[in-house]
């Protein structure tokens, strides 16, 4: 569903992404882990069409896309951002936030679409005429997911969707994302610094370090610790070390 080949992104004299290649099958979830500055979010933003200046090949469903995207692209690919406090317009009601995309794309039955999107993310219908500040962090992230779903996309790009949330709320959102993927056959690209979250949701994982994808593995191999790059080993060691405290 997603094919990336030799992607390079340069900011001034610094190369942030140095020739990254990977592909994600239809209905799969691919996780990208790495630390800040490793280039993981940059990849996601290139795929979402948020940067113009990159080289390499990016294709969705076999169709190559350039820096400028057609309107139809944004019905196929949607993005959910990290911070549910920053990604929703504070002066717009949930109704207004959710109707933006159907209006832009001239979709019919906006009313029905909004209600179905609210139901899909298990938000009460009463939330429709609230403002973002009247909702909790978890509810806001549900709104952000509903906004992405309303386009009826095939691909969701998820940028640290749970790192601003409490662990109890994180569990609810991760379960929701897993359900939606199964029900709708969505393809996910998940970027996170949390190895356990990525291993939970994704079947395949790419590890970014200094702008390069230094290791490409699957979740089972990662869990067993059969990873080769020192950076992956270090990330895994830290993650396991903390887990053992709680058990």
């Amino acid at each position: 569903m997603i094919d990336v080949e030799n992607l390079r992104v340069r900011f001034g004299s610094r190369e942030a992404v140095k020739g990254v290649s990977f592909s994600v099958g239809q209905g799969d979830c691919f996780g990208v882990v790495g630390e800040s500055g490793s280039g993981k979010s940059t990849i996601l933003r290139v795929l979402a069409g948020l940067y113009d200046d990159w080289s390499g090949k990016v294709a969705f469903g076999g169709e190559a896309v350039g820096p400028r995207r057609q309107r139809a692209f944004f019905r196929k690919v949607q993005m959910v951002f990290q911070d549910p406090y920053g990604s929703l317009h504070p002066r717009q009601t949930i109704d207004r936030i959710l109707s933006e995309l159907p209006l832009v794309h001239g979709m019919d039955d906006i009313d029905g679409r909004i209600l179905r999107a609210l139901d899909a993310v298990a938000l009460p219908r009463a939330a429709r005429f609230r403002f973002p500040h009247q909702l909790s962090g978890g509810q806001r992230q549900r709104v952000a997911i509903a906004r992405a779903l309303i386009a009826e996309p095939e691909v969701l790009l998820l940028d640290e969707p749970t790192s601003a949330l409490d662990v109890s709320v994180q569990a609810e959102i991760l379960n929701l994302l897993a359900d939606l993927r199964r029900e709708r056959g969505l393809t996910y690209l998940l970027v996170s610094h949390n190895l356990a979250v990525v291993a939970h949701l994704c079947s395949h994982v790419g590890v970014m370090y200094g702008g390069e994808m230094v290791e490409l593995t699957d979740a089972a191999t990662l869990r067993e610790g059969r990873v080769s790059h020192p950076h992956t080993q270090e990330l895994r060691r830290l993650s396991v070390e903390l887990e053992e405290t709680g058990n």
């Binding site: 662990v167 109890s168 609810e172 379960n175 897993a178 949390n194 291993a199 939970h200 396991v240």
Partner: peptide
């Protein structure tokens, strides 16, 4: 409800 790297779970407990 914390996802675990060593113990895979089908669903996270809520």
């Amino acid at each position: 409800c914390i996802p675990s790297l060593s113990r895979p779970q089908e669903r996270l407990s809520v």
